[in-house]
């Protein structure tokens, strides 16, 4: 699969004010970068549109987007499932 890092980070930066000027730390909780339950909706929707994926209901939980690393893993997994 292609490396999605650039598109993924652009997507995050579009919604998270605190992520804009700095390199994204994949281990830091996204709430520390300004994510709340409402901007999370915008981020997930943008991820779906950007990568042509659809989060199933069981992934629409906070654990999916607790950190950038977790979210990127989820996006990659869904892309792989879709490709196979």
């Amino acid at each position: 699969m292609d490396d999605i890092t650039t598109q993924f980070e652009e997507c995050l930066r579009r919604h998270l004010r605190s992520a804009k000027p700095n390199p994204i730390n994949y281990d830091v909780e996204l709430v520390q970068l300004g994510l709340d339950s409402m901007t999370a909706v915008a981020v997930l929707l943008d991820m779906e549109k950007t990568f042509g994926i659809r989060f199933p209901d069981d992934m629409l939980v906070e654990g999916t987007f607790r950190t950038a690393g977790r979210l990127k893993e989820a996006v990659q997994k869904l892309r792989e499932q879709q490709a196979s």
Partner: peptide, 13 residues
């Protein structure tokens, strides 16, 4: 207007 947005929102919020 954006049904998918609302669906995600209702799951998270």
């Amino acid at each position: 207007k954006d049904a998918r947005r609302e669906e995600i929102s209702s799951r998270l919020n």
